[in-house]
Design a protein around this nucleic acid. Sequence first.
RNA 1: GUCCCCAUCGUCUAGCCGGCCUAGGACAACGGCCUUUCACGCCGUCAACAGGGGUUCGAAUCCCCUUGGGGACGCCA
Length: 479
Amino acid sequence: MPSMPSPRVVTRFAPSPTGHLHIGGARTAVFCWLLARHYGGRFVLRIEDTDTERSRQEYTDSILASMSWLGLDADSAPVYQTRRFSLYDEYIERLLKSGDAYWCRCRPEEVEAMRDKARAAGEKPRYDGRCRALGLGPGPGHAVRLAVPPSGKIVFEDMVKGTVSFDVNELDDMVLRRADGAPTYNFAVVVDDVSMNISHVIRGDDHLNNTPRQILIYQAIGAALPVFGHVPMILGPDRQKLSKRHGAKAVIEYEKDGLLPEALVNYLVRLGWSHKDQEIFNREELIAHFNGASLNSAAASFDPEKLLWVNSQHLRALSSQEMLPRLLPFLRREGIPVDDTDHIMRCIPLYQPRVDTLAELAGQMRPLLLKAADIVHDPAASAKFLSAEGTAHVAALRERLGTLEDFHKEALRRCIHAYVEESGVKLKLIAPGLRVCLLGTGSGPDLADIMEVLGRRESVERLSRALSHAGALISLHRE
RNA sequence: GUCCCCAUCGUCUAGCCGGCCUAGGACAACGGCCUUUCACGCCGUCAACAGGGGUUCGAAUCCCCUUGGGGACGCCA
């Protein structure tokens, strides 16, 4: 039940290409995307590259790649601010003509001196508007400033913060167009949001203070206001600003770690939004429930452990067919042969409930996918579980398995249990040794499951190889 | 310094247009069950309304103050 029926919801995500997409930005993007999808509206991407010093094409490419990996598809090609300078100039002309903006010849150092003075007096640092009455025209070093009304209050309803109000006296005559002709951030944003018909501006609450400035610009150009929604920032586990040492990384890093994009999206959305007690959501559920309400107004801290848990839940929901293409790159990275995809798919269910990430899955599956000759037997586990007695049990079981007519897990299980009963030893005593022989490690999936997947020939070969290896070890000890 | 925003378990949160809250769920931690191991799963334990004033028959829920945290004060975005 959509609570905010709107004729046309248009949202935008507007990163500046000065770095890779990080999780804070990613979460904002997810919120924007979900709101548009929920209401059947449009979602667009705008690259805010007016800072030519710091903007880099490789970051734009990286951000685009991360958006695509996350599944946040836009409804039109990205808009680049650097290609819209003539549009900004048109608006500047209009504001100059109407008297809502004026030329300023003050040098940056002069303005900084004014601010220092105000700061020293315990006031809010601001430009004093001395050029406003001068009636200046364009000229070298001249910027354009907005003529802010002398008094009044800016009040707006924020989707997440509720009623927010600022006193106009707090604001000074901000620069709209730099001396070099480039638009400033606040001005470009407003012109773009107006011309792109953005209905909902969702962004981090570090922009809350920009909003009254931008509203002044909306008013000056006579445009209707969009709905604003300022989502709280994401903090580190220590409540400090999120940084790399908190385990918060760029989105591409999570991709490399083997996270599922739907899991990252799920985790990010729940950081600041909730739907009753539900923790795990698929994409359809998110779209169905995310209507812009229930957004938390307090900052949240990032918890890498819960992210892993969410990922493990999504990982378990995948069928082997769905898992395969996602897993393949990680197996290749481990140098594991990937030609027998049927075999890989049969191995997936054995490890799926045991791991949190795709990278971990690839690592754990390794012994099952390698050839018998390439298995590395963990020396500690071998020493512990492959005593002379343990080895004898493995040898005896190998004989039985070699002649077992039915090599399916139920039969294998019966075979093992029959041996246990007849020999009178505890299963506990022989199982770990068997596993070491099969996989090289003391722990892992169910033995019958392992052997069924391996098949008779491979299982027996692994046992034989391990036995000869263990025999050599034992005779070595005797000498 | 000035302005803005925020405040429920360690963390994410439900609840917040007042009574159904001896505050619910999840992650983590701890204990147990299941089990050939390690996991999964299941069961349980620990754990919070920042403090102080109001308003009210009644406040986690409304108001004020304090404290704490975050953000912003650029010809950066």
